Amino acid sequence: MTILVLSGTREGRDIAADLHRSGIDVIASLAGATRSPRAQDVPTRSGGFGGAQGFKTYLKEHSISAVLDATHPFASAITERSARICAELGIPYCLYSRPAWRATEQDNWTMLGNETEAAQHVKAGEIIFLATGRKTLERFANLSNNYLICRQIDPPNGPFPFPNGEFLIGRPPFSIEDEVRLFKKLKIDWLIVKNAGGTASFSKLDAARELGLKVGMIERPAVPDALCVSTIEQAIEWSAAHG
C-alpha cells in the first residue's frame, strides 16, 4: 500500500514528509520542470510518466493505493489526467488545492481570464514584470508595445522570444524588501502573476501593494469533478486513511 504524492509545491513536500514520518509508504513525483528542485525527504521520482498509458502502468506496477495531487494550481493538464485515470482504475484520488489569493482595498488588481487579456489593460510603453514562468511566455506576444521582464528559476535554453524583453534569473524565496528594491530598480509599471495562492511567493504582491503597482492576476483553471481539500491537515488525514 503506497501513496503517490504528485508534488512540486512546498505543500506537497510537507505532506509527503509528514506521511513518511508517520510510517506510511509514500512516493513523491516531480514533473521535472525545474532542473535543480528542492530535495524531498521521501523516495522521489522525477519526469513525466509517458502519457496516460504510462501513468496507468506506473500506478499498477508500484501498487499505488491512492493518489494525492498537490501539484501547482495551474498544472491543469496533470490534474485532469490524474483524476480521470484514477477514476478509471478505481484508485482513490484527492486534490489538494490551496486557497487562492484575494485582493484587499489597498491592492490594484485586474483579473485576467488568461495571459492574452493583459494587452486589453496595459498602456503602450509600460514596463511589465512577468512572474508567470516560461511555459506560457508566448501568450504575451501581443504586448509588443511594452518591455517585458520574465523571471524564472533556471537559466534559459535560448534567447528571449521577443525583441522587447529579457529573462531575469532568480530562485525564491524573495523578501518583500528584495522585491520592492527590484521593482524600483527595473521601474516596473505592471506585475502579472498567476493566482497560485499560498504564502511562499506572496512577497511580490506585498511589494506591488507597497509601491502602488498595477497587478494583472490570472485566474485559475477549473478543477476536475473530484474530491478536493484546501488544508494540509485535510490532505494528510485523507492520505493516512488510504495508506
Rank of each mutant, 00 (worst) to 15 (best):
residue 215 V to K: 11
residue 240 A to L: 15
residue 121 H to W: 07
residue 161 P to S: 00
residue 52 A to T: 11
residue 232 I to Y: 02
residue 125 G to A: 07
residue 101 W to D: 05
residue 9 T to G: 00
residue 153 I to V: 15
residue 22 S to W: 07
residue 132 T to F: 03
residue 20 H to W: 12
residue 59 L to V: 10
residue 142 N to K: 05
residue 51 G to Q: 10
residue 47 G to A: 13
residue 172 P to Q: 04
residue 235 A to W: 00
residue 56 K to M: 14
residue 113 G to T: 13
residue 68 L to M: 15
residue 240 A to M: 12
residue 219 E to Y: 09
residue 60 K to P: 05
residue 102 R to C: 10
residue 212 G to V: 07
residue 210 E to D: 13
residue 61 E to L: 06
residue 155 P to R: 12
residue 174 F to C: 08
residue 27 I to P: 02
residue 233 E to Y: 00
residue 149 I to K: 09
residue 59 L to M: 09
residue 28 A to R: 09
residue 203 S to Q: 14
residue 10 R to T: 14
residue 2 T to E: 04
residue 114 N to Y: 04
residue 227 L to W: 04
residue 202 F to I: 12
residue 43 P to R: 14
residue 225 D to A: 09
residue 19 L to D: 08
residue 165 G to M: 01
residue 21 R to P: 10
residue 50 G to V: 11
residue 180 V to I: 13
residue 53 Q to K: 11
residue 108 N to H: 15
residue 177 E to R: 07
residue 30 L to S: 03
residue 12 G to P: 11
residue 82 S to T: 11
residue 178 D to I: 10
residue 218 I to D: 04
residue 146 N to C: 15
residue 225 D to L: 09
residue 216 G to K: 06
residue 85 I to T: 08
residue 86 C to G: 03
residue 229 V to R: 00
residue 228 C to L: 14
residue 135 K to P: 03
residue 115 E to K: 09
residue 80 E to K: 05
residue 196 A to V: 15
residue 76 S to M: 05
residue 6 L to F: 02
residue 24 I to C: 13
residue 180 V to F: 03
residue 54 G to L: 08
residue 134 R to W: 07
